[in-house]
Design a protein around this nucleic acid. Structure first.
Lengths: 237, 237
DNA sequence: AACAGTAATATGTACGCACATATTTTGTCA
DNA sequence: TGACAAAATATGTGCGTACATATTACTGTT
């Protein structure tokens, strides 16, 4: 009758994804084109619709195709480059490269947040928060400098933590999980003070990571991390 | 007898994920703790194991828990911040903010790649490639400068494309899909020439995106994109 | 011709079952 | 005690079905 297993090897959904991906790359399904229905692909490839779903869902997650409830699936005309970064804890980032991690508290006080920080945290007005500035070291050399504000309203216990011994980041991760997190990457010229701390020259281009976290709608912390020249984030999409 | 629907509302896997996430946040499943088996959670929450699977899989993808084939599921002790960025085509990035997009070819020639570029592409030795330098504009002002090398071996047709009218990036996306892509974010001080092109001052901190793409194992292109101060990548994890 | 209501349709989700696979644990034997 | 093999176990995957949901397409009315 018909050829129910034309697809070939009857492998898993990963193989299916690969087959469909190949068809896109080879031009069989050109950019903007509509893909066959899941059910048709299932029959064509000799597997269940659920398996096709899994593969198509993965392709959609990768930003390769677009799926709509009745419009079917289409190959994206302008595929975005979708990259996933894992921002590790500084300690682990350092130790992953075989270097010795070190930590050093630079300053700690309680003060009114600048308006910019309050705004980033979604607050209506500045608040008094704990500010901790610290250095992360790799083999005794500056690896990253962080300037952090911690909400006393949300995390009152933080005032009793000895931040000279333990990084605020690690304490927070262990004691205050967050449910929301915003990230912002940019570049900035080092101020003289920052250059001094990072062991570079004023004006050097620093890599800037700004991160704010919340538990529910309550702000936990907002940190600006500065990395000296040579630092880079890499990933494979 | 028993309470088969204790979990409550009998909602979908997204609700399940939320419930489990709540338990993690609330400390019911503290960092490092082992979660119940999928099957037990399924019974406890009154749904099928497949549904629990879906929810747990999502939590694992989010970097919140860790799953192993027999070790069960554990809450990660040091959850990484996992962020997904969509790097759009420059045109769309500009137009998304309501500004007028402009494009300008700065230089185009065929030359030997530097060793650094050849290495980034995974080549054993430098090759002659097409080099295209171009400016992306937003409302007539420099938005991003790109310095691109395109493999003549993989994409010979590129020599016949009029790059003064069409951005190499957009032509490549439309005609040469890629299967692999590496990304690297960093910061760099502007050289005088770069500052001139981007309308900033020499030494200003630029945001640097380096991207290389391949089709299979054949290198397609390698581009260094520079953005002037003010540019930032943001996301919500 | 414009519009609203309805039917058709493709994907999304859920369930229950069976089997595959990767580890851990246990047990056996030297 | 230690090494290696076998059993146990939790997750991973696949199938078939049924129903849910979001859009599109159609259809009849004004």
């Amino acid at each position: 009758m018909s050829a129910p297993d034309k697809g070939g090897d009857r492998q898993g959904w990963r193989a299916l994804r690969e087959i469909i991906h190949e068809r896109i790359l080879s031009g069989a399904y050109p950019p903007g084109a509509r893909l066959p229905r899941d059910a048709d692909l299932a029959e064509q490839l000799g597997c269940a619709r659920a398996t096709v779903q899994r593969a198509m869902r993965a392709l959609a997650d990768d930003g390769l195709i677009e799926r709509k409830r009745k419009g079917g699936s289409r190959v994206l005309a302008h595929p975005v480059t979708r990259a996933t970064f894992d921002i590790p804890v500084a300690r682990e980032e350092v130790e992953a490269t075989g270097r010795a991690y070190g930590y050093q508290l630079v300053a700690r006080d309680i003060a009114q947040t600048p308006h910019s920080v309050a705004a980033a945290m979604g607050l209506d007005a500045p608040e008094r928060m704990l500010r901790a500035q610290a250095l992360h070291l790799a083999d005794r050399r500056p690896f990253m400098y962080e300037d952090r504000w911690i909400s006393l309203a949300t995390v009152p216990e933080i005032v009793d933590v000895d931040l000279t011994r333990e990084s605020a980041n690690e304490w927070l991760l262990a004691h205050r999980p967050y449910s929301r997190c915003t990230l912002r990457f940019s570049a900035a010229n080092a101020t003289p003070a920052q250059a001094e701390l990072l062991g570079t020259r004023p004006g050097d281009a620093l890599f800037v990571i700004e991160r704010c976290t919340w538990l529910g709608s309550a702000p936990i912390t907002c940190v600006t991390a500065l990395a000296p020249p040579g630092y880079a984030l890499t990933t494979e999409a």
